[in-house]
Design a protein around this nucleic acid. Sequence first.
DNA 1: TTTTTTTTTAATGAATTCTTAACAACCAAT
DNA 2: ATTGGTTGTTAAGAATTCATTAAAAAAAAA
Lengths: 225, 225
Amino acid sequence: MVSVLVIDDEDDIRDILTYNLKKEGFIAYAAENGEKGMELLNSVHPDLVLLDVMMPGMDGIEVCEAIRNLPGFERTLICFLTARSEDYSQIAGLDAGADDYVSKPIKPKVLISRIKAMLRRKGMAEPEEKSADGRLVINRDKYLVERNGEVMHLPRKEFELLALLASRPGHVFERDTILEKVWGTDIVVGDRTIDVHVRKLREKIGDGMIKTIKGIGYKFVEQLG
Amino acid sequence: MVSVLVIDDEDDIRDILTYNLKKEGFIAYAAENGEKGMELLNSVHPDLVLLDVMMPGMDGIEVCEAIRNLPGFERTLICFLTARSEDYSQIAGLDAGADDYVSKPIKPKVLISRIKAMLRRKGMAEPEEKSADGRLVINRDKYLVERNGEVMHLPRKEFELLALLASRPGHVFERDTILEKVWGTDIVVGDRTIDVHVRKLREKIGDGMIKTIKGIGYKFVEQLG
DNA sequence: TTTTTTTTTAATGAATTCTTAACAACCAAT
DNA sequence: ATTGGTTGTTAAGAATTCATTAAAAAAAAA
């Protein structure tokens, strides 16, 4: 399931976009400014961010740079929403790491097709991911994990769970977030399912890598000296 | 606690920067040239390096590259200090992996805000998150509370209660408000429940942080001169 | 298909966290 | 001092949450 975060200060735009995104089967979230956007980003971990350039407070460029510099969000797609009057080349010059631009006024159909194109592109070359602490190398397209030179294969769910947790060492992922990111929103699984998968992961990658935060969720341990 | 290493050959600059950094709650170190800087880097492992570009001996660019190639310092932030006369684009062209640039003459306030922006992007703890007396850091992202460098884990209710009180130091939260925010509206708990949680918090974060306002509620102490 | 692997559930027990209850201490107003 | 109301403290046991196991169900592979 693909989730999209819309950050725009205009109420109408947010409503139109989230409505159309949901109609297309995306999970849509919205924030009215950069600061709130960054908060939501942390909690929902979207696959794509639609980002208005001109906003009061933290503008789109700043938000984009902030996202690009946030560990764990390297693979998050960013698409700028620009007013027609704004000079495209200027924005391109200020390129802060966005994946695409769409000009206002936004035609929902155009936006959706651009989004799908971005996702398609992203689906092609997937570089290997490294967890921040360097002790674990995660190879996304082969579902392989390397630990101290030892390569092991993990089943899909276990792999996705590990990849999520390891994407931000130290960050506590709530159980809901884990369910949403690994299992999706439509499928319903019992509460113990996560535990069992964590159990298997701990068995395979070694105890102590994944820590339980009782009442909240799980986290991947941070770099230790 | 965030530590910063200043590498600059001018005594005045080093003094001004370390003074301002310490005033802001950072731990500051200084070195007068690249070689000594690299030594200090190894021993103190700072979160951020402020690096003068023009220095006798090893210049800033070289130091930056050296840091970037040093295992264990991939996440160390680097910020160049550049003289206005130096061509920004040239430095940008020589980009050796720095995270930001600040032009001389350096205005401390500008520098501090740039540093905070960098830390925010990097997802690191900011001095801003500190509570009133500067000795408590509440990190919701990691569900951790840090006190005098000692990190501790709090159970959910205690954490939420502390986060609420510390969100507005000095503000008195009524017992009803606390119940509503931390426990929710539907659940009903007895009168002593809050007290017990406050008791446990005081035990863990130290007495004197949370004050009782008899007949009203509780507050987190304000900034003390 | 059959076999194997992966995923989910269910059940039990352990651990942590939360709440209560009883009483002590405190403060302000009689 | 006495009273009434509020908060502090403590310890016990409720309630919640998680770990673990085994086995069933589903999915993938042979």
